[in-house]
């Protein structure tokens, strides 16, 4: 069963092509992540799926409803959390929740079990104005408000942007729990490390989907061997590796460089050999498993 079916959708603003011929399907009950940098077209895609924008080309259905013709039905069926905090700052936590429950024709009590885990964390602040909450709390409240009418599918546009790492983890745990309730969760994020919290992901760049699959499948398709390289002079090392005739890509990752080689049967000794001619101290080379960022970089360079 599919929750969302997107067929060849495009959207442009003037000359800027925001979403470029995107097609994919999202299954019922999965956590699907759109991962890509700012300006990749994630928000435009979300707004089309939530009926806020009309695509220039192509069509899509959400829960079986056409996003243009059946927009009213979609609007009652989905929960939507925009990228920007969009609750009423001058209303309290409880009032916001009450308002959104009433707007969707339900009550807090009716669907309390769905939001219970999240709401207990908010409860001590229930009489505080929403504008005075911390970033993480705001996101939790926004999630509660998007959930209160028990939507079949939840669209979360960059819910963890600007939120501290602890709150981010908590937030993903909550999404994991919601998945158990059978709610399809479509989420977008610029953080690559959140990819492993999703069931399936789509890597997005400049309006195009570069790859859609399970994370491990995407990683297994990484075409080359990858090494983590370190030495005393990291900056010089970066330049020298880039000058190496067999180098495919060299990127800086935290305290090491991720180096991929264009040769098929390369070993770390080959690289060591080259670097030894260059006068480096404390060289360490290790073959590693690529992570999602490596894959993204690789796909981007294509």
């Amino acid at each position: 069963m599919n929750s969302v079916i997107i067929e060849n959708i495009s959207k442009s603003y003037g000359d800027v092509l925001a979403v470029d011929d995107v097609s994919l399907t999202i299954e019922k009950g999965e956590i699907f992540g759109f991962i890509g940098p700012d300006g990749a077209g994630k928000t435009s895609l979300f707004r089309m799926l939530t009926t806020l924008l009309i695509p220039d080309k192509g069509n899509a259905t959400v829960e079986g409803f056409d996003i243009v013709k059946d927009y009213k039905k979609i609007r009652s069926a989905v929960g939507y959390m925009p990228g920007r905090f969009s609750l009423y700052q001058d209303l309290t936590v409880e009032e916001n929740l009450h308002f959104f429950a009433a707007v969707f024709g339900t009550t807090i009590q009716e669907n309390y079990n769905l939001i219970k885990d999240i709401y207990v964390m908010l409860e001590p602040f229930k009489n505080r104005k929403a504008g005075k909450l911390s970033g993480g709390m705001k996101q939790k409240l926004a999630l509660c408000c998007a959930l209160i009418h028990k939507p079949k599918i939840l669209f979360l546009d960059e819910p963890t942007t600007g939120v501290d790492p602890v709150s981010r983890n908590e937030f993903w745990d909550m999404l994991g729990n919601l998945r158990k309730e059978g709610i399809t969760i479509v989420v977008s994020t610029p953080y690559m490390d959140e990819a492993n919290k999703c069931d399936r992901i789509a890597l997005m760049q400049k309006g195009k989907i570069m790859e859609t699959d399970y994370l491990k499948n995407i990683i297994s398709r990484f075409p080359r061997k990858l090494f983590a390289v370190k030495s005393d002079g990291m900056f010089v090392l970066l330049n020298e590796l880039r000058e190496y005739q067999f180098a495919n890509s060299v990127f800086s990752f935290g305290d090491s460089l991720h180096y991929s080689d264009s040769r098929e049967n390369v070993t770390k000794d080959n690289i060591l050999e080259y670097l030894n001619t260059k006068n480096h101290g404390n060289i360490s080379i290790e073959e590693i498993e690529p992570n999602i960022e490596d894959c993204f970089m690789d796909l981007m360079s294509k």
């Binding site: 939530t50 609007r75 939507y80 609750l87 959104f100 707007v103 969707f104 408000c145 998007a146």
Partner: peptide
Amino acid sequence: EILLVSPL
């Protein structure tokens, strides 16, 4: 944005 994506 959220008011629009609601039954109102």
